[in-house]
Design a protein around this nucleic acid. Structure first.
Length: 735
DNA sequence: ACCAGGCTTCTTTTT
DNA sequence: GAAGCCTGGT
């Protein structure tokens, strides 16, 4: 330290504003600390104040404090808020980031020790699947029987459990396939100088476990360690933080077992529930006062979550009295569900002068956003979609990034395969296979591989194009240390003529070209760094940035978001939609042990996002895989006592409170009461012969009018009985 | 090597 | 209702 950072030690006012439990969490400085932080209990405030307190008490220099968050957005916020308390120049030295970012930072420094290139490439899911496809090919295995995504999942689970290929169980042939793929996949990663998401954590764990010097350094370095969302840590992450904090034992973990929703990717709630076993001397603080939601909303949340077993004891409370009752509504189908939401948004904008950004629509699956998008576009309601097809995953963006990746790391053959024919180069499958095989055997990077194409056995006609490609890449590579990331982006676009390649006269082509331009803008952020370093950082950032990270709450528009991504956010008005059996809880969750519990926690997370108003909606019919299916109200609706739910608004049927046992029967009664007004046209009568492009010919068994649609039950000669929407299905009436 | 068209399967959830 | 895979044609 050359100079003492300018501290603003007058935290007394900030401390005085905390409640007693919050204050205890802040002022506890030494030794292990477990904070159970319920939804809306001021967790971020406690964490940031605690860090500021540590700094102002001179407990540690900022660069010796490590805070691990779940998203980059949370990390940024934390740094900002600490900055407001102790000064930005001080806060900038803290280590704040996601598990993955933190590990990348460590790995960049420790690369040599691990026999790793400093410019290692981070493989995202897409790259992993592409790699596995190649592996399967190499092993002569059928991708239909052994879907790459399933194998990727199995390997990921193993890695999260710190298991190598030998740790894959031996139950059946599929396991055997997974094990062999795992071995080959690892070899491919190593040859490519690549690490996948899980490897980032795994490599640091290994480093700390196996190399005493490194372990000593990092354990000494981080005097204070804080981990947010501890209930969502997996085995590898658990080992990592406990290892890092082992020397000073100043480990503070924050979380809420009721909000554990990432079990499917290896998160283990026991990490938080067993913290006191790991650290018998731990101080435990419970933050139970909720500063976000109305009493009515909190009550509903409590009713839902209390059905779960194995919860750490706690109950949220608020001194906000009363509040609007929760409104539950069943609509005819997903279109009307969206219409209803749109109606309410319009109404509340007028009645309560609310802004668009005060509303959020929360759903279980990304596919559900479609109906809302369609309706919002038509009704000119501005919205922003979080998640779904991400910017970084768009084809053209990935193509351009693949070029940059080859430049940053010439061993990255996965990226080479991706762009070998972008634009068309007439280098065929056979040629690519021979080149890749040769490169593997001879341990070559992309450049040498292309230079020795003839030797590799590439077909004669391909040699010309290959040589040209090599020349292009070399000319780009000459600029790598010299040009800044954004300039490099432009150069790739120009040399490879990507604009012309994507230009196809369609609006989609236009969009692709715009996205390329947008990439330039992102890259600019890394221009101030050393050129090569900037390129590496840019590429890492790109693969580690999620959609919520770029979410800006000040931006106008209704938020459309999944229940998983919404954790940590809050909105004055929340619509929790698609509350149907099969959707929430999701069909797939029913097959898993404890699946239902996690679904219920999702519901709980959704409810607790709401400040003032909460709507719960479900649809009677929903199109799934393009076909209408019947939906039963979610069992979770039945967890909420009728007394907490408002009477249905006029003209709307209430969601049937799902009876604990016989909900099918009661549901049907309800749906009869719910008979909506007739739609404009009834095109078919009972007994009509019809033709459908997919299902062939059939006979209408029953035609029913609903408020906006004609619902048809058709018995197809070949395809059997189907329920179709008269408005949507391309049905043709036969004479 | 590339394209069009038909077939299938598919969907949880994400760093 | 889309994306991906396969086939058969050029």
């Amino acid at each position: 330290m050359t100079q003492t950072p300018a501290l603003r030690p007058d935290l007394s006012a900030v401390l005085a504003a905390l409640n007693p439990q919050q204050r205890e969490a802040v002022e506890h400085t030494d030794g292990p600390l477990l904070i159970f932080a319920g939804a809306g209990s001021g967790k971020t405030r406690v964490l940031t104040t605690r860090i500021a307190y540590l700094i102002s008490q001179r407990k540690a220099w900022p660069e010796r404090i490590l805070a691990v968050t779940f998203t980059n957005k949370a990390a940024r916020e934390m740094r900002e808020r600490v900055g407001q308390l102790v000064g930005e120049d001080v806060a900038k030295d803290m280590w704040v980031g996601t598990f993955h970012h933190t590990c990348v930072r460590i790995l960049r420094r420790e690369a040599p020790r691990l026999g790793l290139e400093r410019s290692f490439t981070i493989f995202d899911d897409d790259d992993t699947r592409a790699s596995l496809r190649r592996v399967l090919d190499g092993l002569g295995l059928d991708q239909k029987r052994y879907p790459p995504s399933l194998i990727a999942n199995a390997i990921s689970n193993a890695k999260n459990e710190l298991q190598g290929p030998e740790g894959i169980p031996n139950r059946n042939y599929f396991d055997e396939v997974v094990r062999r793929c795992y071995v080959e996949y690892e070899a491919l990663l190593r040859r490519s100088g690549g690490l996948d998401f899980d490897d980032l954590i795994l490599s640091v764990v290994k480093l700390l476990q196996e190399q005493e010097d490194a372990r000593g350094y990092w354990q000494d370095r981080f005097r204070y360690v804080l981990v947010d969302e501890y209930q969502d840590t997996n085995r590898a992450q658990y080992v990592l933080v406990n290892l890092v904090a082992a020397e000073h034992r100043n480990l503070a973990v924050v979380g809420d077992d009721d909000q554990s929703i990432y079990g499917w990717r290896g998160a283990d709630v026991r990490n938080i529930l067993d913290f006191q076993k790991d650290y018998p001397d731990a101080t435990v603080v419970r933050l139970e006062q909720n500063y976000r939601s109305s009493q009515a909303i909190l009550d509903a949340a409590h009713q839902v979550i209390q059905h779960n077993p194995e919860r750490a004891p706690k109950k949220l409370w608020t001194d906000r009295k009363g509040g609007e009752k929760v409104i539950a509504v069943q609509t005819y189908n997903e279109i009307e569900e969206a219409e209803f939401v749109a109606d309410e948004i319009d109404r509340l904008r007028r009645a309560e002068s609310r802004k668009y950004k005060e509303f959020a629509v929360l759903y279980r699956t990304n596919a559900q956003s479609r109906g809302f998008e369609d309706v919002f576009v038509r009704r000119r309601i501005p919205y922003r979609l979080v998640g779904g097809i991400k910017f970084w995953e768009r084809r053209e963006v990935k193509d351009l990034l693949a070029y940059l990746r080859i430049l940053a790391n010439p061993s990255d053959s996965v990226s080479f395969v991706r762009v070998v024919n972008v634009p068309r180069r007439k280098i065929g499958q056979v040629t690519v296979d021979r080149l890749i095989g040769f490169a593997r055997d001879q341990q070559l990077g992309v450049m040498e591989m292309l230079d020795r194409a003839a030797e590799a056995g590439a077909p004669k006609p391909a040699l010309g194009p290959i040589e040209h490609f090599a020349k292009q890449l070399k000319s780009l590579q000459a600029s790598v240390g010299a040009l800044r990331p954004s300039e490099l982006v432009d150069l790739v676009i120009e040399v490879m003529q990507l604009r012309a390649f994507y230009e196809d006269g369609t609006p989609q082509g236009e969009a692709r070209i715009e996205n390329l331009a947008e990439l330039h803008g992102y890259a600019e952020e890394f221009d101030p760094l050393d050129p090569k370093e900037g390129l590496d950082e840019f590429l890492a950032e790109v693969t580690l940035t999620s959609d919520v990270d770029t979410y800006d709450e000040k931006e106008e528009g209704v938020t459309l978001i999944t229940l998983h991504m919404v954790k940590g956010l809050e909105f004055p008005v929340v619509f929790l939609v698609g509350l149907e059996e099969g959707l929430l809880p999701h069909q797939r969750s029913l097959e898993e042990e404890k699946g239902i519990d996690e679904e219920r926690r999702l519901m709980y997370v959704g409810i607790t996002r709401a400040r003032d108003r909460l709507y719960l909606t479900c649809a009677f019919r929903r199109h799934i895989f393009g076909q209408a299916a019947a939906g039963m109200p979610s069992r979770f609706l039945g967890d909420i006592p009728q007394a907490l739910i408002s009477a249905p608004r006029e003209g709307r049927a209430p969601a049937a409170p799902p009876p604990r046992h016989e909900y099918r029967q009661r549901f049907l009664e309800r749906s009869v009461q719910a008979a909506p007004a007739p739609p404009p046209v009834q095109r078919f009568g009972d007994g009509d012969r019809v033709r459908h492009p997919n299902f062939g010919e059939g006979q209408v068994i029953k035609s029913t009018l609903t408020r906006t649609d004609e619902e048809l039950v058709v018995k197809f000669d070949k395809a059997g009985l189907k329920i179709l929407s008269g408005a949507l299905a391309p049905l043709e009436k036969l004479a």
